[in-house]
């Protein structure tokens, strides 16, 4: 696939509903170690709600799809990841407005806008042990590899996200609930970094079909 059309975007969001359903306990366990044991439940609730909206979005432009996902996440996730992923999709929507397909470069622009929104909403930086530790390297990798096309770009992005997420383990959390634990937050993966990795991985799966 060279472009991401609105059908694939819907397929991606649908897949995310399944993925977070399956990973619910895994993410919650991670959050139990350094947070309040709800990240899995939050993501599962949010994306299940998104999934119920998808049929009605058939045939709509990608901006509208992203925006609907964003508003749904804002009102159903509950945790910090709600406004963060919500803002992610909201800003991605502004790049995808009135478009029925995104070129590889536009996917990059959407990711870029979305990730910048996470930065400006959460005010976290690389190394703070948050979802950004997966998202920022993934974006950089994508932009570097995207000349080769959408799928190769996403492959590199997912690799980088996985590596970034794995690297959160020794970090001390500086943002979010885990930061209350201070040094005790070291030694565990960040749940948000893992959920972000799943998000990109599902996008790769969809784009590869």
């Amino acid at each position: 696939m060279t472009e991401l059309d609105s059908k694939s975007v819907i397929a991606w969001l649908r897949l995310l509903g399944e993925v977070y359903g399956q990973k619910k306990d895994y993410l919650t366990d991670l959050d139990a170690a350094i947070g309040d044991a709800d990240h899995g439940a939050n993501m599962a609730r949010g994306f299940a709600a998104v999934a119920t909206k998808l049929d009605a979005l058939e045939g709509k432009d990608i901006g509208t799809i992203f925006k609907t996902a964003a508003m749904t996440l804002l009102s159903t996730v509950g945790g910090a990841s709600g406004p963060l992923y919500g803002s992610f999709f909201l800003q991605a929507a502004s790049v995808a407005n009135n478009k029925n397909a995104l070129t590889a470069a536009e996917v990059g622009a959407a990711l870029d806008a979305g990730i910048k929104a996470v930065v400006s909403r959460g005010k976290a930086q690389a190394g703070d042990k948050t979802m950004l530790d997966a998202l920022l390297p993934a974006l950089a990798a994508y932009q570097e590899a995207v000349v080769g096309g959408l799928v190769p770009g996403l492959q590199k992005a997912v690799e980088a996200a996985k590596a970034g997420s794995a690297a959160t383990k020794p970090l001390i959390a500086k943002k979010g609930r885990a930061s209350y634990l201070g040094e005790r937050s070291a030694g565990h993966l960040d749940p948000g970094a893992e959920s972000s990795t799943f998000l990109l991985d599902a996008l790769l799966t969809t784009a590869s079909q």
Partner: peptide, 15 residues
């Protein structure tokens, strides 16, 4: 609160 009857812990920007 969040969830259908707002009994779960969480916040909702639209609310």
């Amino acid at each position: 609160g969040t969830g259908d009857d707002r009994s779960e812990l969480g916040t909702d920007a639209t609310e």
